Simulated scan of single mutants.
Amino acid sequence: MTDAAIAAAVEAVRAADVVTVLTGAGMSAESGVPTFRDVATGVWAKYDPMTVATPEAWEADPALVWAWYQRRRALVQAVQPNAGHHALARWASRADVGVVTQNVDDLHERAGSSDVIHLHGSLFACRCDMCERPHSVAVIDPDGDRLTPPECECGGQVRPGVVWFGEELPHNAFAEATARATGCDVFVLVGTSGVVYPAAGLAHTARDAGATVIEINPQETELSEVCDITIRSTAATALPAIAGTASG
């Protein structure tokens, strides 16, 4: 992280009326939440995420999928929001800062952010696979590989409230995110690789609408060339440095 990049980011957000922040897997990874890539080589080494995170996987073996997501929920509940989550929440409490996330955890909300757009759904927003009725589900860490999903009153099964591979993003969520990208003065990318579309396209939308685009990521990404300011640091380090000095 360079002082010059932080100074440029602070100057940009101080001059902005509206800021939109898009967070990706790197944001939660600092709290100990594995990315899909980490999952494939760590706790979930014997599963290919593609075989437990698709509609076809749910059709073939809902008990396997349900157990996998229950473990993910238990893992998320065992970790805490990091300094980046808390910095964003404090910033949004005093300025027009909207949070759009590709993450399916609840760390932004637990840090105090009250208005978060979840592009890929949420681990904790389960629903019926037939009637779409929302369901509140107790989180447990299964002993085995399979766990029978709860039943809905309509006879369907309760499924995880996430967007699986092959499914469309929630229309309302993406429309709101697009509006935030179009209407902001500064668009901040935090911990996202920029390879997952249509979410990654929001940076282009913001840039085309005239926003200053800032990237916070230790590594160069597919979106780095779109950015006006790049900060080679992590969210937990860079966001407090920017948000703590941004005017409200």
Rank of each mutant, 00 (worst) to 15 (best):
F174T: 10
P149K: 03
V104H: 08
V79W: 05
L107Y: 08
L119Q: 13
V162G: 01
D106S: 07
A92H: 10
F174P: 12
C126Y: 05
A63D: 15
E109W: 03
R94F: 04
D105F: 05
A173W: 11
D105N: 04
P81I: 06
G161Q: 06
L147H: 15
G112C: 11
H120A: 09
I140A: 03
L169R: 13
A95Y: 02
A89Q: 10
V163K: 06
E151G: 01
V137Q: 00
R159Q: 02
D115Y: 11
A89V: 13
N103I: 01
V100M: 07
C126I: 02
H171K: 15
G121F: 10
Q80T: 14
G144C: 13
D129I: 00
P150V: 09
Q102R: 01
R73E: 04
N172S: 14
L88W: 09
G98M: 07
E109M: 13
Q77L: 09
V163Q: 04
E151N: 08
A111G: 10
H171A: 15
V162C: 09
D141C: 13
G156H: 05
V76F: 08
N103C: 09
E168M: 11
R133V: 14
Q77W: 05
P134R: 02
P150S: 04
A138N: 07
G84F: 10
